[in-house]
Each structure stands twice: as structure tokens, then as C-alpha cells.
Design a protein around this nucleic acid. Structure first.
Lengths: 242, 242
DNA sequence: CGAATCGTTGACAGGGTTCAATTTACGTGG
DNA sequence: CCACGTAAATTGAACCCTGTCAACGATTCG
């Protein structure tokens, strides 16, 4: 039972830009199926030239790179609506691996149709580029965080970011969002050790700024947390959905 | 005396993908002029929605973000052939500032023509997206460096990267390339203090792995340096030129 | 020649890492 | 239903890589 693009549950959120009927149809044609994976399943491998690319329909995951010595850098967290495999589709080689952190449902597209999809609609081509630029934008922020912020500000920044992304997808209820990652994942995203990440989370909990336990993150006052993060709270830009 | 795209001195390098006559002409039409700026001149500001976008024709520069407390994260170094303002053109807002580190000559394009340029040629639209994805790819590497590598490996990684980019543009002669940045720039790129960056550079110099002084970087054995950087030496991918 | 910018070096302190042990949660098999 | 094994979270303590402070040298420029 495959979800029809026409009835895509994601598009109802304000976060995603409206699509013309034609764009929906074109996307539907591009879509070759759906993939269901369990938590922990690798989806794309760094350096691979996978024949398929995806959009996260449900569930959450991780983008990460493995260093030669085994250390890991988490590049981003994946939320529903995120496009996966853009680099493979364009450059022919993924710059990072992707794996599922929860059970996930993914829309599947064939890489060989990607160029056609790109050519057949200027607006869709523009959307793909928009997503690439948006990811570049985010990575700049992440780089600044890892490079310049203290551990406390960095963790606060990451949690704020995650909370806003969840909120834009109606995943926040009673100041609470699902956060199915491990502390190690956050540590690897911020370039911190697991131990120090744990202690920093404890500090935020004591200050009642953010409480992450049992795979759920509770934030009562996002503005206060953003202050600790030394960041300004801007609304997320409406983004294209593919 | 404006450089004709037909005679663009950059395109002769193998680093840049060949362009059809039509693509050259379309780019020529897109190009609205040239800009010459001195070292230290700001070119684009973070958060701005500049009416113009650029390609670096000559000279070098910096992309950087300023944190609320004044700290600075250098996001990338700019070499000839680099496209500047893609985020402004697409998202309508730069994620970082850009400034010249040397005297620079820039090809100028009007943002209002960008969408037309994008629509009028699938291959050029693809190229723009390619560049965005490529920058995303690089930022992932940079993030992994700042997050996971030690100071020594990080500095070695950055110098290796810079050297390869220079080499691909025929800027290396006798194992020597121009490197017109300050140590503070490199420090801000790696999230290190100036003092520690200086001492780390001294260590690489003592080991005769890399000698950066008088705005010139000398590397005799790039493979050895890459070993210290804990990275593998891959050829740069041929990239589109806009 | 003084002011400003950049590079260099030493001393010291601290934020964060590493090591190590304990606790908690959870699934599996007997 | 309980024993056991494994993954994840937590906490304490020692250590060290890197940041901060401070002073000085080199170069450029008006």
C-alpha cells in the first residue's frame, strides 16, 4: 500500500511549499516505490553511487561520515520530508552515509530518472537546487557551532534546532518531541565526547532548559534555550518537497 | 576591458568541465560586467539579499560567519572559478559573508536574470546544482575535520586541501603556491586559537612537511602531509564553471 | 619615527577527553 | 518468570590538548 503523492501526508504542513497539480504528478511519476526499513539499517553508504535516492516519509535517521581511524562525524539528523541521496544523484558519489535511527518509510526514486525529472520541469530543478543550497546553509551553521561554540552552547544549539524542525512537522505536543537518537549521536554531531555530552545535557536539565530522556525531548522555554545557544530564533523557511 | 567568456582564462584548466559553444554564449549573456576589488573589501554580507552574484575570476578570498559574540568561523577559502552568492540567488539570503583577501577580479551576474539562466538551459541548471552539492560535500569534510581531527591533523588537512585546489589551477610552481591569508584566517577556519595554530604550523615546518611564510606555502611531499592529516588524496572532480 | 598589523614564543589555566566503574533498561532464552 | 547479556546512560577522577594572557619581534606605511 504505497502512499500517493497526491495524498502525501507531509505536504499539509506549512513547512513545505505548495505544489502545483502538475508538480505533484511529475513527482508521482518519478517515484518508483516505497521502502520500509528498521532502526539501525544502513540506507546509503559514503562513496557509493547508489542507483536509488529517497525522501524520508516517516521516521528519523542520521547522516554521518566515518574517519579513517573509526571516529564518526554526524553531519545531520534526518526528519520526515528530507531528501536523501542528492549528492549521489548529482555528483555520483555520496559524501556521507545514511542510516535509520527509527523504523522509517522512504519514497524511492531511480537515479537514472533523476536527470529527466530535472529537465522536465524548471521549477522542480530549482527545488532540487534549493535543497542543496539549504543543506549547505545548515552545514555552515553546524561548522560554526562545532568550531566556535562551547559545549553548553553547542548542545543547546543542536537541541533548539531539532526542536524547531520537529515543531514544523507537528511532532511537538506538550512541549515534547520524540528524539530517538543516542547521546553518542549528538556527541558525534558536535565533536564532543560522550561523557562530556552527557554531563552537559545534565546541566541543561538542572537548569530546566531541556530535558532529554526516554527518547523524548522536553523544552518548555525555547527562547531561554536559544539564549544559552547564543543564537537567534528564526522561523524555518518553507522548503520544497520532493 | 572585460574578459569575454569565450576567452575565459579559467576554462583552459582541466579542473573545469568543457562547455559547449551554446553554454558559453548563454553564460556571456548572463554576465553583466566585472568587478575589481582590493584586499579586505567585503563582497557579500551574511543575511543580505544582494542583487548581484559573482564568479571569482582572479584572486582569493574568504567565506565566513560572525557569531553574536564576535567570534568568526571561516567557512571556506575562495579560489578562482568559485561561484559566489549561490545562496542569495536561490534562497534569497546569504548564509555567510564573503570578502577579498587579495585584489580580486569578479564576473558579475544579476540575480534577477538568475532564474532565466536557470530555466533556459537544463545543463546550466544542473551545473548550478552540482556546485551547490559540491559545496555541501566540502562542508561535510570541513565539519568532520573541526569535529574529529586534532589540531595537527586539522591544519595538515587544510593545507593539503588548499594545495590541491591551487595545483588544479596551475598556481603551484616548484612545490610553492601563493597563500595570501593570515594565520588568524586558518585558525578561524579550524576552530583553533591563533596561538595554537601558529605553534602547530611551526611543528609542521620543523617536520619539513609544510612551510607557510611570506604568504607562500611550500609543500614538497604532499603524500606525507596527507598522512598526517589522516586523509586520502583524491583528485579533485572536474567542476562546472559559471 | 610612531602606529598598526601580523607572526612568534613562554607560562599557565581550564574545558574537554579518557579511563573506569556503576546503574538502568530491555530483550532473549531457559 | 527469572537469569543473563548487551546497549545506553550516568558519575567520578586524572590527565592533557588547547585556549588565554602577555610580551616581544618583524614588517609596513603614512
Amino acid at each position: 500500500m504505497v502512499t500517493d503523492c497526491k495524498n502525501c501526508p507531509l505536504r499539509q504542513h506549512d513547512l513545505f511549499q505548495p505544489m502545483s497539480k502538475e508538480e505533484v504528478e511529475r513527482t508521482q511519476k518519478f517515484k518508483s516505490g516505497e521502502l520500509s526499513v528498521d532502526a539501525g539499517t544502513p540506507i546509503l553508504m559514503e562513496g557509493s553511487n547508489a542507483p536509488q535516492i529517497y525522501t524520508a516519509l516517516r521516521g528519523m535517521g542520521l547522516r554521518y561520515k566515518i574517519m579513517p581511524d573509526g571516529r564518526r562525524q554526524v553531519v545531520n539528523f534526518i526528519f520526515p520530508g528530507d531528501f536523501i541521496g542528492l549528492q549521489a544523484g548529482l555528483i555520483g558519489e555520496m559524501g556521507h552515509s545514511v542510516e535509520a535511527s527509527t523504523h522509517m518509510k522512504l519514497c524511492v526514486f531511480d537515479r537514472k530518472d533523476f536527470f529527466d525529472f530535472f529537465r522536465n520541469s524548471t521549477s522542480r530543478a530549482f527545488d532540487v537546487t534549493w535543497l542543496a543550497a539549504s543543506e549547505e546553509h545548515f552545514l555552515g551553521e553546524a561548522l560554526a557551532t562545532v568550531g566556535q561554540r562551547t559545549a553548553l552552547a553547542g548542545v543547546a544549539w543542536a537541541l533548539t534546532q531539532l526542536f524547531m524542525r520537529a515543531d514544523a512537522r507537528n511532532m511537538v505536543q506538550n512541549d515534547t518531541m520524540p528524539l530517538p537518537f543516542r547521546q553518542q549521536d549528538l556527541a558525534d554531531a558536535l565533536g564532543l565526547s560522550l561523557v562530556h555530552t552527557n554531563k552537559t545535557l545534565a546541566r541543561l536539565r538542572e537548569r530546566q532548559l531541556a530535558n532529554w530522556s526516554d527518547r523524548r525531548l522536553v523544552i518548555h522555554d525555547l527562547e531561554e534555550l536559544a539564549k544559552v545557544a547564543e543564537m537567534e530564533l528564526n522561523d524555518l523557511r518553507p522548503r520544497p518537497l520532493i
